[in-house]
Design a protein around this nucleic acid. Structure first.
Length: 397
RNA sequence: GCUGGAGUCGUCUAGUGGCAAUGACAAGAGACUGUAAAUCUCUCGCGCUUCGCGCUUCGUUGGUUCGAGUCCAACCUCCAGCA
């Protein structure tokens, strides 16, 4: 089992440490979205320096390119992308939701590669195998997000997610059993041999011989009775933690999280999938018992010129910043804010320089990482409610 | 001076008798939440009571025509060639 120590509780909120083979994650923590084994526009050194504790890559994207075999050959995700800290992989389940023309059956999901149209198929088992080959510390179960808001569709997707979870758990445990472990759980050993019908004829070897962990994913959309059902189902599984999926807005998230996180076992970590673009998401998520977050929003918005400040987001491309030689966020100690003015960032964006996206990404990623870190600190200090109130009042004024 | 070509929104450009007039860029603004996103959307002659109306536009001035950016004439400017 994944080790998770809780240092302090405050209602549903908790401050803890997740101990992974690649190191600790002090929670609550914001996990960087590294879909294709890179946080867009940033080097891992920059990610490290801005304070990121972990990254999350995407199984779907890595299956397409470069292929999970190559990542295994490189020594696993962490070695491949040179991120020597904790890693997560998402299962590819989200792509069922986001891609057009996916065929979902009980057995599998079939889709065409968005790159070259090639046919692909992912099953709960093959997602597990792929994630083991990629070798992240924490894997997500292969889940199904309903495309419609209809309750019937939601319920059906939820039940399928549960049935698939059984298969994910079984495959995960089978893989663990089949692996010939060398040394202890955290040591790297020889490549392990796995059997797979999806990734090579006879055998596929997993990444480094170190333990990898599985999170179940809670679904149920905006229906709290479904959320409760899903949380109960997931809670009963022999998994290491939980992803909470299918959340798209902070509206109603507090009630939903109260429902879900009151049911999920306290001693296992919870990851709020895909949320964190809005600071509100982080405050509400942490307050109601989530330990980690990931979101593409901060880096995507950075590339598009939308930058966080304590007074809300600004669009640095706006003409009013042409002659603004002040810092983006005077209190910020990121590389961007410490060295450059708004006028310079404005200029880089207007001239479409690559560095614009780099500096903006450093800032935005640092912003969400450090806000989450401060949420952690305020929970430890017992000042969370004050911090939340003053932060949100200023940010959303 | 002669001959040929060209002058359309900030720029380049489409348009050869019935459109305030194409596309691109620039400019202005907005969106973005488990990344098919270095993306996408909107505005971009002027003024309004702005899912519509009015006015003024395609080098200039006239002309032909019900109607001209489109045809004709003269002029102005630019380019090329010849003197």
């Amino acid at each position: 089992m994944l080790k998770f120590d809780i240092e302090k509780r405050d209602g549903l909120a908790r401050v803890g440490v997740i101990h992974t083979p690649h190191g600790d994650i002090k929670t609550p923590a914001f996990v960087g979205a590294a879909t294709r084994a890179t946080v867009k526009a940033l080097t891992m050194k920059q990610m490290n320096e801005l304070g990121s504790q972990a990254i999350l890559a995407n199984t779907y994207h890595l299956i397409l390119r470069p292929g999970v075999e190559l990542i295994k050959e490189a020594g696993g995700l962490a070695e491949f992308c040179s991120w020597h800290k904790p890693t997560f992989t998402d299962s590819g389940g989200f792509q069922i939701f986001s891609l057009p023309d996916v065929k979902i059956t009980e057995e599998s999901v079939k889709f065409k590669s968005h790159i070259d149209g090639a046919n692909f198929e992912i099953t709960p088992e093959s997602s597990m195998q792929a994630q083991w080959a990629i070798g992240a510390d924490i894997h997500m179960a292969f889940d199904h997000l309903a495309k419609s808001e209809d309750k019937k569709d939601m319920e059906e997707a939820m039940h399928r997610t549960h049935r698939w979870l059984d298969r994910c758990v079984a495959e995960h445990q089978r893989i663990i059993k089949d692996v010939t472990w060398a040394g202890d759980e955290t040591g790297r050993g020889p490549q392990n041999v796995l059997r797979s019908k999806n990734f090579g004829e006879g055998k596929v070897s997993a990444g480094p011989a170190q333990m990898q962990y599985l999170y179940a994913v809670v679904q149920g959309g905006t229906f709290n009775d479904l959320r409760a059902k899903s949380a109960k189902y997931c809670a009963g599984q022999p998994v290491d933690g939980f992803g909470i999926g299918g959340v798209f807005t902070a509206d109603g998230m507090d009630e939903m999280l109260k429902t879900v996180n009151s049911i999920l076992p306290e001693d296992k970590p919870r990851h709020l999938l895909g949320m964190g673009q809005e600071p509100l998401d982080l405050f509400v998520g942490a307050e109601f018992g989530c330990d980690t977050f990931d979101c593409v929003g901060p880096t995507r918005m950075a590339r598009n010129g939308s930058l966080y400040t304590y007074d809300g987001r600004i669009n640095i491309k706006n003409a009013k910043y042409t002659h603004d030689f002040s810092q983006l966020m005077p209190d910020c100690d990121c590389e961007c804010c410490k060295n450059y003015t708004k006028a310079y960032l404005h200029h880089l964006f207007k001239t479409d320089e690559i560095t614009a996206k780099v500096l903006a990404s450093i800032h935005n990623e640092h912003f969400v990482v450090s806000v989450t870190d401060q949420i952690r600190q305020s929970l430890l200090d017992g000042t969370f409610q004050n911090y939340k109130k003053s932060f949100l009042a200023r940010y959303y004024k």
